[in-house]
């Protein structure tokens, strides 16, 4: 579905992506993982067209990414931090995106395969009660819900989900996960980044691990667990990197040293925070 060949990107002196080659298979959930600064964000932004690579090619569903914006019709994107015009209401924001996508005036339904637009998440998150509030008054969780709705709204062939459960309460998070799995069943290709390894283990079929701008490994989740003989993904990745101990310690592989019970909230928040500061400082991760 997405083919990346010899992708290279510099930010000044920083070599962010070093001849990256990835082939993301259709209809599966692929997690892009790696420590901060490994090049995850750069890779995903390159596919989305936000970052212009120095060299290499990216093909999305047979269309080469070359500056034309049309291929993005096939893409849905849920950003880690969502910001929309402060004074527009939730309803207006949805209308605006529909307008831009050329769906203005078409109303969606929450039924799965009927209608042009997928409003299931809107209904399940119960956003109708919030629809006339301006965006600036919304809580972090509700903002995240809007992003999720917009990502799934147009039934895209490819979905990018950047830390999808950040800021969501357990119920909403669970609704979102159900939706992700349902979309996969429908045949949608999903690319996921997350710092919560349990979430990745629960959702992903495939792991692409980036380190210092290179693909360190690319394995299916089951193969990874089998290879390392571990029960959890977190342990498995730690072990996998431990096989190349020198590299791991040099890069401060924090995930590898995290205890098994560190898969829940406080740890994830800590990571999210770090990621966030990094992005605002110049988006060079």
């Amino acid at each position: 579905m997405i083919t990346i060949k010899e992708l290279d990107k510099h930010y000044g002196a920083l070599h962010a992506l070093k001849s990256v080659e990835v082939d993301i298979a259709p209809g599966r959930i692929t997690a892009v993982l790696g420590p901060n600064g490994a090049g995850k964000t750069t890779l995903i932004k390159s596919v989305l067209g936000l970052v212009k690579p120095d060299s290499g090619t990216i093909t999305v569903d047979g269309t080469e990414v070359n500056g034309d914006s049309d291929y993005r019709r096939k893409i849905g994107y849920m950003p880690q931090i969502a910001r929309y015009p402060e004074n527009l209401t939730l309803q207006e924001i949805v209308d605006m995106i529909k307008d831009i996508r050329g769906y203005s005036g078409i109303s969606g339904t929450s039924k799965h395969f009927s209608g042009d637009l997928d409003m299931e998440l809107w209904d399940r998150f119960d956003l109708d009660t919030e629809k006339d509030k301006p965006f600036r008054t919304l809580s972090g969780g509700n903002r995240q819900k809007v992003s999720a709705v917009l990502a799934f709204l147009f039934r895209p062939k490819v979905l990018f989900l950047d830390e999808p459960s950040t800021g969501l309460d357990p119920v909403s998070s669970s609704i979102l996960k159900d939706k992700i799995l349902a979309e996969k069943k429908r045949g949608t290709t999903i690319i996921l980044t997350s710092h919560i390894m349990s979430e990745v283990q629960e959702l992903a079929d495939q792991v692409v691990y980036l380190l210092e701008g290179r693909i360190y490994f690319e394995l299916s989740v089951s193969d990874l667990l089998a290879d390392t003989g571990q029960q959890t993904l977190e342990r498995a990745i730690a072990r996998k990197i431990g096989q190349n101990g020198a590299v791991a310690s040099r890069n401060g592989m924090t995930q590898g040293h995290r205890p098994a019970d560190g898969q829940n909230k406080p740890v994830h928040d800590h990571y999210a925070e770090r990621e966030q500061t990094f992005v605002t400082e110049g988006g060079t991760s």
Binding site: L48, G49, L50, S69, D70, Y71, R72, R73, I75, Y77, P79, I81, A82, R83, Y84, P85, I97, I100, R101, F160
Partner: peptide, 17 residues
Amino acid sequence: YNTREYIEMLLCHPVKR
């Protein structure tokens, strides 16, 4: 500066720069 994320979000839709 304040609409930076908004611009990024819009650019993920079929909008020309």
